[in-house]
């Protein structure tokens, strides 16, 4: 028997950490989606698909811009000392993932704006002809646009892995102290974005491609989740019991049903059948993937706060 009692009773800290509510998972989810979309858009630019009139790379930046802004709003809403938010940008703290993240976000916005200007709205260009300059600059040389595509992918990956690194840099929470959490969030972002683009893509080729790609991402995601769990289970006792929170503990139901079942396995099967033309493409499977990604963030953030060193020492 090991009976531990504490007189501490701090709000949001005891009996288990509850400092992060819906805002952070939503931000992580939206950040992941934006990361995936930038990777996809960048890939299409790299592949020279900018010549296709209805290429997704032209409207994904708009969507990314909106989603990223919503994510930033969620992040802002989470701050407890909101009036001091500007303090983020009076310094750069090299050891702080949060500081890296806030600066990356600042760099991503211009990136998205340039992406948008690859095909600026006609009405706007008429008024401000100067806005046509970037388009002219990039389109004048295929290598330029290819390089720009790579740069877009680079920043997309940056956000994606940052969302994972943010949590795993907080070593005090055993569930998060995994070196592949960033990969999980990146792949999950990719699969969510691919599912999303698959639904909205006007280009048939892209739609088919993304359905296939999404299946690949889902398989990889499943694999990364397995690695994540095995990594925790084979690490320290506290990390092992943190993994148990997902496998058999309080979060097992949401993890198995929503993340693994409805978020990965079932949409994978549906999409396999659809890709092989056994059934029709519907938005159902992609929607499931996207929701699965959202629940994944909720589960990881919530269970991570619940996991703790002290419970076993």
């Amino acid at each position: 028997m090991n009976e531990i009692t504490s007189t501490r009773h701090n709000h949001l800290i005891d009996p288990s950490l509850q400092i992060w509510n819906w805002e952070i998972p939503v931000y992580l989810f939206l950040g992941g989606m934006v990361a995936g979309m930038m990777l996809i858009a960048g890939y299409f630019l790299f592949k020279g698909r900018e010549n296709e009139e209805n290429c997704s790379c032209f409207y994904l930046p708009y969507i990314s811009f909106v989603l990223l802004s919503l994510g930033m709003l969620a992040l802002f809403l989470d701050l407890e000392h909101k009036l001091y938010v500007w303090r983020l940008y009076t310094t750069f703290e090299i050891s702080s993932a949060m500081s890296w993240g806030s600066w990356i976000l600042v760099l991503v916005y211009p990136m998205l704006i340039v992406n948008i200007l690859l095909k600026p709205p006609a009405a706007v260009v008429e008024k401000f002809p100067i806005l046509n300059k970037p388009k002219e600059y990039f389109f004048s040389n295929p290598m330029r646009i290819k390089s720009f595509g790579v740069l877009t992918m680079f920043f997309g990956a940056g956000i994606g892995l940052y969302t994972g690194v943010l949590l795993s840099s907080l070593g005090a929470r055993p569930l998060w102290s995994s070196s592949i959490l960033w990969m999980l969030f990146l792949v999950s972002g990719l699969s969510g974005a691919a599912a999303f683009v698959h639904v909205i893509a006007k280009n048939v080729y892209e739609r088919e491609l993304l359905a296939k790609a999404d299946n690949a991402f889902l398989i990889i995601e499943l694999f990364v989740i397995a690695l994540f769990i095995v990594g925790l289970k084979t690490a320290t006792e506290v990390q092992a019991s943190a993994a148990d929170l997902l496998l058999t503990g309080d979060y097992a139901a949401s993890f198995w049903v929503f993340v693994i079942g409805l978020g990965i396995v079932i949409p994978f099967i549906i999409q396999i059948l659809a890709v092989n033309h056994k059934i029709k493409h519907t938005p159902i499977a992609p929607l499931m993937v996207i929701l699965g990604g959202l629940v994944l963030r909720f589960v990881i953030v919530s269970a991570g706060q619940f996991s703790h060193w002290f419970r076993t020492y």
Partner: peptide
Amino acid sequence: MNSLSRRRFLKISG
């Protein structure tokens, strides 16, 4: 979602 987890989510917001 199983009742346990749901309760936990609810518990958090509550």
